[in-house]
Design a protein around this nucleic acid. Sequence first.
DNA 1: CAGAATTGCGCAATAT
DNA 2: GATATTGCGCAATTCT
Lengths: 161, 161
Amino acid sequence: MSKQPQQKLTNTDQNGVSVIQSQAHCSVGNSAGTTAGLQQVPQLVPVNAGGGGKATPSSKMKKTILDKESDEYRQRRERNNLAVKKSRMRSKQKAQDTQQRVNELKEENERLEAKIKLLSKELSVLKDLFLEHAHNLADNVQPNTAATVTPGDLCNTNNSQ
Amino acid sequence: MSKQPQQKLTNTDQNGVSVIQSQAHCSVGNSAGTTAGLQQVPQLVPVNAGGGGKATPSSKMKKTILDKESDEYRQRRERNNLAVKKSRMRSKQKAQDTQQRVNELKEENERLEAKIKLLSKELSVLKDLFLEHAHNLADNVQPNTAATVTPGDLCNTNNSQ
DNA sequence: CAGAATTGCGCAATAT
DNA sequence: GATATTGCGCAATTCT
């Protein structure tokens, strides 16, 4: 997947055989022969076959030099066009999905970040309490009076999230 | 943005006008006949323009009935081809970037998740200590002996991350 | 060898 | 008016 074989071919078109296709959709109806001028196809004939018109694609020869007319040709084109469409659709879909994924991940991230903030805060509170308590102990304070905190306050820390 | 005007045109090819163009500036070799056979071609001329070859795009006429020959036409095509290439490149780049973003976000997510785990653990430890201590107090234990914990242990909790 | 999937490319209709 | 986008078909390759 993903390579770029196709001969780089500098924009200067080298061999170009190109074709035009479409056009057709001129006006709406077009159905019949509405199409004004447009001549039809030139028929690129395969000049072909170097010296001995090999009919059999032995070693060198490209293929059988496709006949644009051939039914088989048309069929193949049509199938390919279909495949192309499919492929592109998928590609597009994938891109969309990826974008969506980004959004989801971003949200998730915010949630996590928030949770961290919360936990950090709790932790800091607890630590402070501890330090305070330690102090009290150091100062030799009565244990009972030292009960400044009720653990209960810290027990509902089950952040649902 | 995003619509799909282009006449759907059922795949049944209606009238296809095909042509070959290039050729002209073949010059640079394109080396010999690399391209197998392909002869060129016919040059589809726009049969066209009703009676008088109007040069001026008056009211009805399409445009000036583009002359495929016209220099201006060729120039426009070339510029457009360029634009198309550019656009596609960008599009591809964007997709790639998005994918990358996904990866980054995923990593970040894992980091956050880990941090949360850590904080949670610390918190849980602290809470346990608290509970234990509370117990001791309840049981009326001597404060001094209650010094089971040293706050110091909890002070280096600055998770670098 | 065949058939589907990808990919680069150019055209033309639109959109901006 | 010019460039940017987009759908489409062709052909060359690659993948199955």
